[in-house]
Protein backbone atom coordinates (compact mmCIF):
# COMPACT_ATOMS: atom_id res chain seq x y z
CA UNK A 1 0.00 0.00 0.00
CA UNK A 2 1.38 3.34 -1.04
CA UNK A 3 2.05 6.16 1.34
CA UNK A 4 0.74 9.46 0.01
CA UNK A 5 1.94 12.75 1.43
CA UNK A 6 -1.04 14.95 2.24
CA UNK A 7 0.28 18.53 2.24
CA UNK A 8 -1.63 19.13 5.48
CA UNK A 9 -1.29 15.82 7.38
CA UNK A 10 1.91 14.23 6.09
CA UNK A 11 2.30 10.67 4.87
CA UNK A 12 -0.78 8.50 5.18
CA UNK A 13 -1.81 5.15 3.62
CA UNK A 14 -3.44 5.39 0.22
CA UNK A 15 -6.76 3.98 1.47
CA UNK A 16 -7.38 7.33 3.17
CA UNK A 17 -7.37 9.09 -0.20
CA UNK A 18 -9.47 9.34 -3.30
CA UNK A 19 -8.33 10.43 -6.73
CA UNK A 20 -10.33 13.13 -8.50
CA UNK A 21 -8.87 12.91 -12.00
CA UNK A 22 -6.54 15.20 -13.87
CA UNK A 23 -5.53 18.46 -12.22
CA UNK A 24 -5.23 21.96 -13.66
CA UNK A 25 -8.38 21.63 -15.77
CA UNK A 26 -9.65 25.17 -15.29
CA UNK A 27 -13.41 25.62 -15.30
CA UNK A 28 -14.13 28.33 -17.88
CA UNK A 29 -14.74 31.73 -16.25
CA UNK A 30 -17.84 32.39 -18.34
CA UNK A 31 -19.30 29.07 -19.40
CA UNK A 32 -22.14 30.65 -21.35
CA UNK A 33 -19.63 32.29 -23.67
CA UNK A 34 -17.70 29.05 -24.18
CA UNK A 35 -18.16 27.21 -27.47
CA UNK A 36 -19.67 23.73 -27.49
CA UNK A 37 -16.33 22.29 -28.53
CA UNK A 38 -14.40 24.06 -25.78
CA UNK A 39 -16.97 23.05 -23.19
CA UNK A 40 -16.79 19.43 -24.34
CA UNK A 41 -13.01 19.67 -24.03
CA UNK A 42 -13.37 20.90 -20.46
CA UNK A 43 -15.89 18.17 -19.63
CA UNK A 44 -14.46 15.14 -21.31
CA UNK A 45 -11.00 15.48 -22.82
CA UNK A 46 -7.98 14.52 -20.72
CA UNK A 47 -4.29 14.04 -21.51
CA UNK A 48 -3.94 10.48 -20.13
CA UNK A 49 -0.14 10.57 -20.29
CA UNK A 50 2.31 7.73 -19.98
CA UNK A 51 4.57 9.06 -17.25
CA UNK A 52 4.15 11.96 -14.86
CA UNK A 53 0.54 13.03 -14.49
CA UNK A 54 -0.85 15.93 -12.46
CA UNK A 55 -3.86 14.74 -10.49
CA UNK A 56 -6.38 15.97 -7.99
CA UNK A 57 -6.53 13.97 -4.76
CA UNK A 58 -8.64 14.38 -1.66
CA UNK A 59 -7.73 13.17 1.82
CA UNK A 60 -11.31 12.14 2.38
CA UNK A 61 -10.69 9.83 5.34
CA UNK A 62 -8.40 12.37 6.94
CA UNK A 63 -8.54 16.14 6.85
CA UNK A 64 -10.99 16.17 3.93
CA UNK A 65 -8.92 18.60 1.90
CA UNK A 66 -8.17 18.54 -1.80
CA UNK A 67 -4.64 18.86 -3.10
CA UNK A 68 -2.73 18.12 -6.27
CA UNK A 69 -0.15 15.41 -6.91
CA UNK A 70 2.32 14.50 -9.59
CA UNK A 71 2.17 10.74 -10.06
CA UNK A 72 4.01 8.57 -12.54
CA UNK A 73 1.40 6.46 -14.31
CA UNK A 74 4.00 3.84 -15.23
CA UNK A 75 5.62 3.23 -11.84
CA UNK A 76 2.71 4.45 -9.69
CA UNK A 77 5.26 6.60 -7.87
CA UNK A 78 4.10 9.88 -6.35
CA UNK A 79 6.66 12.45 -7.41
CA UNK A 80 5.26 15.17 -5.18
CA UNK A 81 2.08 16.61 -3.76
CA UNK A 82 1.23 20.31 -3.57
CA UNK A 83 -1.56 22.58 -2.46
CA UNK A 84 -4.58 23.38 -4.60
CA UNK A 85 -4.14 26.64 -6.40
CA UNK A 86 -0.37 26.41 -6.71
CA UNK A 87 1.15 25.79 -10.12
CA UNK A 88 2.41 22.42 -11.25
CA UNK A 89 6.01 22.03 -10.02
CA UNK A 90 8.56 21.80 -12.76
CA UNK A 91 10.52 18.59 -13.13
CA UNK A 92 13.67 18.64 -11.03
CA UNK A 93 12.60 21.52 -8.80
CA UNK A 94 13.11 21.33 -5.04
CA UNK A 95 9.50 20.53 -4.39
CA UNK A 96 9.55 17.38 -6.53
CA UNK A 97 10.48 14.92 -3.86
CA UNK A 98 8.83 11.61 -3.24
Amino acid sequence: MLLIRCPYCGERPEVEFHCGGEAHIARPETPTETSDADWAGFLYYRTNPRGVHAERWVHNHGCGRWFNALRDTVSDRFVTTYEMGTPRPEAGSDVTRA
Binding site: R65, M84, G85
Partner: peptide, 9 residues
Amino acid sequence: EDYLQTEWP
Protein backbone atom coordinates in the same frame (compact mmCIF):
# COMPACT_ATOMS: atom_id res chain seq x y z
CA GLU B 1 -16.73 20.26 -0.93
CA ASP B 2 -14.92 19.68 -4.21
CA TYR B 3 -16.41 22.82 -5.80
CA LEU B 4 -16.00 24.86 -2.65
CA GLN B 5 -12.35 23.96 -2.19
CA THR B 6 -11.16 23.81 -5.76
CA GLU B 7 -13.34 26.15 -7.85
CA TRP B 8 -14.63 28.74 -5.41
CA PRO B 9 -12.14 28.92 -2.52
